[in-house]
Amino acid sequence: MTQIEIRDLRVEYKTPKSDEAFVAIDNISLDIEQGEFITIVGASGCGKSTLLLTIAGLVNVTSGSVTINNNTVNGPGRDRAVVFQDASLLPWRSVLGNVKFGLEMQRWKDDDIGERAKRFIKMVGLEKFTDYHPHQLSGGMRQRVNIARALAVDPDVLLMDEPFGALDAQTREVMGDELMNIWERDRKTALFVTHDIDEAIFLADRVIVMGRDPGRIKEVMKIDMERPRNAAMFESDEFAKYRRRLRDHLEEDMASMHLVTEVA
């Protein structure tokens, strides 16, 4: 069943100084099935985060449409939850307080909130750190809290905006592995933005490759590898083949990049 339908999507940003609008993404059409894990890769400035945040309802659509379960997206909603980069936890709240935050904002019943939050903290393996504050946790632990916060509100679609972008390579691999384990339990539809090629292949059913100027879809690459996935797959010939293809795409963009000033 198709869960997310994106049709001729175009998003423009107003730049603060000039009247000219900057086209972040244009002409994007895509169908995403329920239970699919989609990763989005591309050089910086290709609009991959914009695409994700538009689906989240945090960025306004200029033209075209995004529908989820046949409802047109025009703002954040209970059917989606976002995992952001490192800095999006409330620093003055404990781990428990942060996981409760999403539930509170969505007006869940008070009696359910505490128990539910604890359950998801346990799921990401942080039950010993329930009362810790973000500044007392490592980057990897903070991202576990972020994931628990998003999953606790029981969304249909999980949106992840470079959630492991601030982590070192080793932690990143561990987190990718764990994310897979968690995801395997109920296989929610997931979109995952990254600039790490291996991560993109390892997690995905399909990899969306985006190009820039304007941000657009260059290729949709199906990853035919069995699930559950494991670290041994990194060494396989298949994996190497996907990796080479993605790398060709990205290098093409890199080559043209030094001509253009960076627009994050």
Binding site: V73, N74, G75, G77
Partner: peptide, 9 residues
């Protein structure tokens, strides 16, 4: 959801 959106603006 439209209420949320106008608030968000």
């Amino acid at each position: 959801m439209s209420v949320v959106q106008s608030d968000a603006n």
